[in-house]
Computed example of a mutant assay.
Amino acid sequence: MDAFISQLPALLGVVVGALGTGLVTFLSTRSQWKRGQSVRWDERRLEAYGEFAQVLKEIQAISLRVLSAADGDKYRSGFDKAAALPRLADADIRHTLAWERLLLLGDAATVAAAQDWREAVWRLEHRAREVGETTEPLSGLYQQANASRDRFYDAARRGLGVSGGSVAQSDRLQQRLASPEDHQPAAPRS
């Protein structure tokens, strides 16, 4: 019995060491798994945000091109409404699918910002399709869509932990619209 008692501290040291090693291994593995899951979901979230932004921007661009053609804007390459409607219909289907993915993966702030952008683009699209009546000037609708897009990108970048400052474009785009000389072709040189 004396031999057992003299060996007891060493035996307890081995047991405590094994338990400690097991606990550290478990915590390390769990931490690695959580980091892996976080990266995996961030990648999926980024894909969902990018897909949504791309298709919504497509709807916005087509709608603006239809509206600019209707307004006789010779500095933009406009679309004939009849030719644009099938493209809008196709983009709308992709938009619906991208929206569902964004709802599934997005954080609350990004989804709210996406909803605002979505509604602003709907107003442009409805104007292009001549659905409903809108008395708001086109420049106001365009500014709302661009400002909403900026808020979406800001929320998405914050949610994904992307640093690097603002990527806002709406003010710059609004300035381009406000100065028509930017859209006029250069005078020929003599």
Score class of each variant (00 low, 15 high):
Ala3Glu: 11
Ile5Ala: 14
Ser6Trp: 03
Ser6Leu: 10
Leu8Pro: 13
Leu8Cys: 13
Pro9Trp: 10
Pro9Tyr: 11
Val14Leu: 09
Val15Trp: 14
Val15Lys: 06
Val16Lys: 08
Val16His: 08
Gly22Lys: 03
Leu23Asp: 12
Leu23Gln: 10
Val24Leu: 15
Leu27Gly: 04
Leu27Ile: 11
Ser28Ala: 10
Arg30Val: 09
Ser31Lys: 06
Arg35Met: 15
Arg35Ala: 15
Asp42Asn: 01
Arg44Thr: 11
Arg44Gln: 15
Arg44Lys: 10
Arg45Gly: 05
Leu46Phe: 03
Leu46His: 04
Tyr49Gln: 14
Tyr49Asp: 15
Ala53Asn: 03
Ala53Glu: 05
Gln54Trp: 12
Leu56Glu: 01
Glu58Asn: 06
Glu58Ile: 08
Gln60Cys: 05
Ala61Gly: 04
Ile62Met: 06
Ser63Phe: 00
Arg65Thr: 00
Val66Asn: 04
Leu67Val: 11
Tyr75Trp: 04
Tyr75Lys: 10
Phe79Ile: 13
Phe79Tyr: 14
Asp80Pro: 01
Asp80Ala: 13
Ala83Ile: 11
Ala83Thr: 10
Leu85Cys: 03
Leu85Phe: 06
Leu88Trp: 08
Asp92Asn: 06
Arg94Pro: 03
His95Asp: 02
Trp99Pro: 00
Arg101Asn: 13
Leu104Phe: 03
Asp107Trp: 01
Ala109Ser: 08
Thr110Glu: 05
Val111Met: 06
Ala112Asn: 12
Ala113Cys: 05
Ala113Pro: 10
Ala113Asp: 07
Ala114Phe: 11
Trp117Glu: 02
Glu119Gly: 12
Val121Asp: 03
Trp122Cys: 04
Glu125Thr: 15
His126Met: 08
Arg127Met: 12
Arg127Glu: 12
Ala128Tyr: 07
Arg129Pro: 03
Glu130Asn: 08
Glu130Pro: 01
Gly132Met: 12
Pro137Thr: 06
Ser139Leu: 06
Gly140Glu: 10
Gln144Arg: 14
Gln144Cys: 04
Ala145Arg: 00
Ala147Ile: 14
Ala147Arg: 11
Arg151Phe: 01
Phe152Gly: 15
Asp154Glu: 14
Arg157Ile: 03
Gly159Thr: 08
Gly159Tyr: 02
Val162Trp: 02
Gly165Lys: 13
Ser170His: 02
Leu173Cys: 03
Gln174His: 14
Gln175Phe: 12
Arg176Val: 03
Arg176Phe: 04
Leu177Gly: 09
Ser179Arg: 13
Ser179Asn: 12
Pro180Phe: 00
Glu181Thr: 15
Gln184Gly: 05
Pro185Trp: 01
Ala186Phe: 01
Ala186Gln: 06
